[in-house]
Design a protein around this nucleic acid. Structure first.
Length: 732
DNA sequence: AGCACGCCGACT
DNA sequence: GTCGGCGTGCTC
């Protein structure tokens, strides 16, 4: 008697917390983790085989068959499927949607993968006879390109673009003249084979860190690498990567921002020129992303460098995970599958039995707490690795006694003047882009607000616009107060543009460069700007967070901070933690090589203990005081939280849904369920938002509660309400 | 998420 | 008399 065809459980990108069963004749265990095409409703979808069973709990006669198995890419390993299963359980997000979210978009579509082939160009025999003088003297780009290609090798477009942006038209002209030929070859992930950079001598502390972590290569262990800016964390990473590669392993390195990726990729390429390095981030073109994903999945790329989404990359030889700047909030995905890549990285290391390194100068309080409790091994790098480099001196400028002029105090202005005279660079850090965060009427107290959000509109004076930074709403600047008719509306507070104007007035001769999301979008890209800054093409930099993150500018010796205080009266209990990290980070920009840096912070609260500890560069002291506060107040990491969020056209609709959810919740000791409230930003992009907070002293109890609660939530009919659950929320 | 089915207002 | 509004329910 022939045995019944197996039943395949398929993960589909459907917001329903279950898998779908299909008849799967001919499928074997080897197809688990493989993509399949299946009929779904009256359409077809791509899913992933999660398991094969002899039987189904669904009526057998209703089962449809799997239409096709795509065997064009490696199947997801059972190990990776296990990680995705964990994430689905832990974040209470449907398994099918979780699995599909881990795939590059092209693999979610119902066509077999076309492996991307890249164009390369090579000089022909005729082209090789050309001399530089044969090309016009006023065509330096052509001459540079010719010099570069004279080796007769095939050069991929990406490599030629590095010589000359407009290489394409030049090379095409050469092809038509018979000087060059186009060649199609598989895209290469290491386009510039070269001599490897020699690793520098490690400090004793760095050597010790490398030795400690390398000793854990065969098993799981989580390390917190706590090192101040300039203490050489990257160099420790590089040595660990070398060690992992020597053992035949792959390394996953997670970094916060796409902005960091090109710079860091450069460092890794220079040190490991013969190793294929895959990069994965959301800014990449779909095809490019697939190329890199496949290189990682097939084990060809031995180093994978990416943002949070890379934590789900298929890595058959994974031997080491590193999360750089692990405290950074960009490791948290805020929609869809709401995961924290740093935490997923730790679980992944645990499941695989390999070490994971979390690096930061200002670890997340949760991480620090784990290190204090012994769950993570703390390794501290206390000295700056660069010889003679000292920590910057941090001074506080009391803006109550010394009123700033258009945002800038006399002391800060004098300090900038002295840098200008010495040919050094200054950085002025402002927390808001735009001209000013409000447009106000001083007669009646009106200020311009967004109609779709509960937020003030930000004045962008140059564009004569008021913009909402939350929903993108734009309107023209009004010239009279809509409430009282007063014609004298004034900006309130300072944004980067206003500080830039102010600096221009004080230092008309200085070259001032503004760096924020607005200025980097047009004109020059941020990497171009960084190059210009490093070359000394600017005297004063004005900018937001963008400037704070991990770039060395050797001529930068002064950092001024304009309006840090707002975090001190924020209702968000994590605001001070973020402020400290931010100030520590931006302060670290000053004086990295040789010259000691100076940081000047304008504040109304110079006596605040945050600033005192910052002046002493005392992260540990600050963390201890924050942890004591959190313990006393019963906040994380001493409790574990989850937030049920709801959005609707009307606030009462959202609240009513949450109230129903509250009533449907199972009773469980050790779980506190708060009453529904409106969100901190009650209205965003036209949607009214409310939330329901749940917490418990133990993760296990919270998880048990959520597991029991979720089916109840799915059973509620959510008329016009969009809801989602946020486990370990960053903001409430 | 799609996409159908299904029961109540303004139009050829 | 129909076209179409989006509420509700299902997809293996």
């Amino acid at each position: 008697m022939p045995s019944a065809p197996p039943i395949a459980q398929i993960a589909l990108d459907i917001p329903v917390p279950r898998l779908f069963d299909y008849l799967a004749p001919g499928l074997t265990k080897a197809d688990i983790g493989q993509r399949v095409r299946v009929p779904f409703g009256r359409k077809e979808m791509v899913g992933v085989v999660m398991g094969l069973l002899p039987d189904s709990s669904y009526a057998l006669h209703k089962l449809k068959p799997v239409l096709e198995v795509y065997r064009d890419a490696p199947a997801l390993s059972t190990e990776l499927l296990r990680l995705l299963n964990f994430c689905s359980d832990y974040y209470h997000y449907p398994l099918g949607a979780t699995v599909m979210a881990a795939l590059p978009t092209i693999l979610r579509r119902s066509q077999p993968v076309q492996v991307k082939l890249a164009s390369a160009w090579q000089l022909t025999a005729a082209g090789l006879t050309l001399r530089t003088d044969d090309l016009p003297a006023r065509a330096p780009a052509q001459r540079a390109l010719l010099d570069h290609m004279r080796d007769g090798q095939a050069h991929p477009g990406t490599a030629l673009a590095a010589i000359c942006r407009g290489y394409r038209s030049i090379v095409k002209a050469w092809v038509s003249r018979g000087w060059a030929a186009q060649i199609i070859q598989p895209a290469t992930l290491h386009p510039h084979p070269a001599e490897a950079d020699a690793p520098p001598q490690l400090t004793a502390a760095q050597q010790d860190a490398v030795a400690q972590i390398s000793a854990a290569f065969a098993h799981y262990q989580a390390f917190l690498l706590h090192g101040i800016t300039g203490s050489g964390k990257t160099e420790v990473y590089l040595h660990l990567v070398a060690a992992a590669l020597a053992r035949g392993g792959q390394v996953l390195l997670l970094v916060p921002e796409i902005n960091l990726t090109p710079q860091l990729t450069g460092v890794f390429r220079a040190r490991f020129p013969h190793i294929a390095i895959a990069t994965l981030h959301s800014g990449m073109a779909e095809g490019e992303r697939l190329t890199h994903w496949l290189a990682a999945a097939e084990g060809r790329a031995r180093i994978v460098l990416g943002t949070r989404l890379a934590v789900f990359a298929a890595l058959p030889q994974l031997a080491l995970l590193i999360v750089d700047e692990e405290h950074d909030s960009s490791f948290h995905q805020q929609d869809g599958l709401r995961y924290a890549a740093r935490d997923v990285a730790v679980v992944r290391a645990q499941q695989r039995g390999v070490p994971v390194v979390l690096g930061s100068a200002t670890p997340a309080l949760e991480t620090w707490h784990n290190a204090q409790g012994g769950r993570y091994t703390l390794i501290s790098l206390n000295q700056r690795a660069i010889a003679h480099a000292r920590l910057p001196t941090i001074s506080l400028l009391d803006t109550r006694s010394c009123k700033p002029d258009e945002g800038l105090s006399a002391t800060l202005l004098a300090a900038i003047r002295s840098r200008l005279d010495a040919g050094q660079q200054s950085l002025v850090f402002v927390n808001r882009r735009g001209y000013s965060p409000a447009l106000m009427c001083f007669e009646c107290g009106w200020s311009a607000a967004c109609t779709r959000c509960s937020a003030k509109l930000v004045l962008h004076l140059r564009e004569h616009q008021l913009r909402c930074h939350h929903c993108g709403h734009v309107e023209q600047v009004v010239h009279a107060c809509p409430a009282c008719g007063n014609l004298d509306l004034k900006p309130g507070g300072f944004g980067t543009q206003r500080i830039e104007d102010s600096l221009t007035r004080h230092f008309p001769q200085a070259r001032i460069l503004r760096v924020d999301r607005d200025s980097t979008r047009k004109k020059h890209s941020w990497p171009d700007m960084q190059r210009a800054i490093r070359k000394g093409a600017a005297d004063i930099l004005v900018g937001t967070q963008l400037l704070a993150k991990g770039h060395d500018f050797p001529k930068l010796t002064l950092v001024g901070v304009i309006n840090a205080d707002s975090a001190l009266y924020s209702p968000d209990f994590r605001a001070t933690e973020r402020l400290f990290a931010q100030l520590m980070q931006v302060g670290g920009r000053a004086g990295r090589a040789g010259a000691a840096g100076e940081v000047l912070i304008q504040t109304q609260f110079p006596e605040h203990h945050l600033y005192r500890l910052l002046q002493r560069h005392d992260y540990a002291g600050f963390a201890a005081s924050l942890l004591a506060e959190r313990a006393a107040a019963g906040f994380p990491p001493f409790v574990h939280q989850a937030v049920l969020r709801a959005e609707a056209g009307r606030l009462d609709t959202a609240l009513a849904f949450l109230h129903k959810a509250q009533c449907a919740a199972p009773h469980m000791t050790g779980v506190t369920l708060f009453d529904p409230t409106q969100a901190a930003m009650a209205r965003k992009a036209g949607a009214e938002r409310a939330l329901l907070l749940v917490q418990s002293p133990t993760r296990k109890v919270l998880q048990a509660f959520l597991s029991a609660w979720m089916p109840q939530l799915y059973a509620l009919k959510a008329n016009n309400v969009r809801w989602n659950l946020d486990v370990d929320p960053l903001e409430i």
